[in-house]
């Protein structure tokens, strides 16, 4: 895919990842080259152990590759120190997890504020939560929210720092069908309206239909990297 340097949100060059497992070495990624463009909604598909979560972790600076280089926003994150990586995660990336990972002792609003106070120009927390349909649930603790509501709080937390890149690991993994679809609709809308780059990791191949691009992994290699010329709206999805 041809793209100018400015348009690339994340670029992986010859990235490998090896996990030592006792006496064995597990090759999670085997020379991945990839470029994700700004404002794209990308879905990475693959069976368990294909390396999709590893790619997400490397893009988010949660892990470092065994070889190769990763660039985002013009900077090489593989060369960052621990402190710089923290700042990178704080300012450039939003994370959405399968299990929401909200802080149980903080309310919905506080969970989002916690991330907001880490950056100098956060989005307004109240309106953001209201926009995500949580205007009435601000003072509720995670244990008082449904799964869908919790995930929406997690989305708000990921967006409040206004990061260019949002990384999602099986965001509907433990949600029911309808709620899962609503979450994807929400994310897709945000991607479109706010111009964020979304990278979603899932094993659900049907989700590829809503993506601008679908990347398929197998055994740590990219086996398919396709642009979807006619992405569906999430509401139209069936699986």
């Amino acid at each position: 895919m041809a793209a100018s340097h400015r348009e690339i949100a994340v670029r992986l060059v010859g990235v490998t990842k090896v996990y030592p497992m006792g006496a064995l070495q597990v090759q999670a990624l085997q020379g991945v080259d990839l470029a994700i463009l700004q404002g794209e909604f990308v879905v990475i598909l693959g069976p368990s152990g294909s390396g999709k979560t590893t790619i997400l972790n490397l893009m988010g600076g949660l892990d470092s590759p065994s070889g190769g280089r990763i660039f985002t926003d013009g900077a090489e994150i593989t060369a960052l120190t621990v402190g710089q990586l923290t700042r990178y995660r704080r300012e450039k990336v939003g994370f959405i997890f399968q299990f929401f990972n909200l802080i149980p002792t903080l309310t919905a609003q506080e969970n989002v504020e916690l991330a907001a106070e880490l950056v100098s120009r956060p989005l307004a927390v109240g309106p953001l939560l209201a926009e995500l349909g949580l205007g009435e649930r601000l003072r509720h603790f995670p244990s008082e929210l449904s799964g869908g509501e919790q995930q929406r709080v997690a989305i708000a937390r990921a967006l409040v720092t206004d990061p260019p890149l949002v990384l999602c690991d099986e965001p509907s993994g433990i949600l029911d069908y309808e709620t899962g679809k609503r979450i994807f609709a929400l994310m897709k809308g945000i991607c479109r309206q706010r111009g964020k780059t979304f990278v979603v990791v899932t094993h659900n191949a049907a989700l590829g239909q809503i993506a601008h691009r679908v990347i398929q992994l197998r055994d740590g290699r990219v086996v398919r990297d396709e642009v979807n010329p006619h992405p569906l709206e999430a509401e139209a999805l069936r699986w």
Binding site: R89, R90, F95, F99, L102, L114, L118, T161
Partner: peptide, 12 residues
């Protein structure tokens, strides 16, 4: 997991 999440979202 909470601590890891805090680190992930950018707490030093």
């Amino acid at each position: 997991r909470e601590i890891a999440t805090l680190r992930t979202i950018g707490l030093s």
